[in-house]
Amino acid sequence: MVDRVAANVSAYALLAWMWIRVSLSYRTSFALLTAGQFLITGLDFVAILVMFSNVDVLGGFSLTEIAFLYGGSALCLGFADLLLGNIERLGQRIRLGTVDQMLVRPLSLFVQVCADEFALRRLGRITQGGLVFAWSIYALDLDWTAARVAMVPYLLVFGTVIFLAIFTIGAAVQFWTAESSELANAFTYGGSTLAQFPMTIYPVEAIKALTFIVPIAFVNWYPSLFILDKPDPLHLPTAAQFAAPVAAALLTVAAAGIWRTGVRRYRSTGS
C-alpha cells in the first residue's frame, strides 16, 4: 500500500517535471500565460473592491475579513487546480484516444491524467490568492493565538483536498458524458466563487446544502469562523469548525468510488 502510494507519487513527480521542462522551453508564452492567470484572478478581487466602494460591510463582514475568505478560497482552488486541474479535460482526452495510450503504461491512469500537461503557470492564481491572503492576515486586527495560527495551514490543506475531490468527481462524470466538462465548473469555480463571500449572504437552506450535501462550506467558511471569531449562522456545535478533515475524507472516498466506477465503465464500453 505504502509502496504503491510512493510509486504513484514519484510517477506523478516525474511526469509533472517533464511538463515543466516543456513549458520552460516556451519562456515568453509561459511568462505571458502566468501573468494572464495572475491578472484574471486579480480582477476577480478588484470586482470585490468595486463592491466595497459602494458599501462598508457585506453580510456582516468587512473588506479585510472578506479578503481572508477570498484568499483562503483562491489558494485552496489554486493548489487543487495546479495539482490536477487538467483532469477536467478528460472528455477531450477520451475523444482523442489519449486515455487508451495511458492505459498501456504501467502507471495508474489517475496519476497520468492528473499530471498530463502539468502547468506551472497556474502559480499565477496561487500567487494572487496568496497576496490577498497575506494582506488580510496583516491587516486583520486579531489576537493571533497558537490555535488561530495553526488553523491557517489546517484550512489550506483540507480545503485543497476538498477541491481535489470535487475536481476528480467532475472529471469522472465525463466517463459517462464526455461533453459535460462544463458541469464540473459549477462546483469547482462556482464553489470557489461562492466561498469567497461570507455564507451569511446566502439563504439558510443554501448554507445547509453547502455543509451537508456539497461540503464547500468546509473549505474555508468553518475554519474562518474560528479564526475570525464570528458567529455561525447555522448555530452548529463548535466542533463543526474543526470538521474539515471529516468532510474532506468523505468527499475523497466518494471521489475515489466514482472515479473507479467511471474507469470500469470506460473499460467495459470503450467509449
Binding site: 463592491m51 459602494n54 458599501v55 457585506l58 453580510g59 462544463e182 458541469l183 465548473n185 459549477a186 462556482g190 466563487t193 461562492l194 463571500f197 449572504i201 446566502y202 439563504p203 443554501a206
Partner: peptide, 17 residues
C-alpha cells in the same frame, strides 16, 4: 446548469450589496 449556479451566487452577492 453552470450558468444558473453562477446566476444564483452573483444574485446573492448583489442582494447583500
Amino acid at each position: 446548469f453552470t450558468n444558473s449556479v453562477f446566476g444564483l451566487i452573483i444574485s446573492f452577492t448583489y442582494i447583500a450589496v
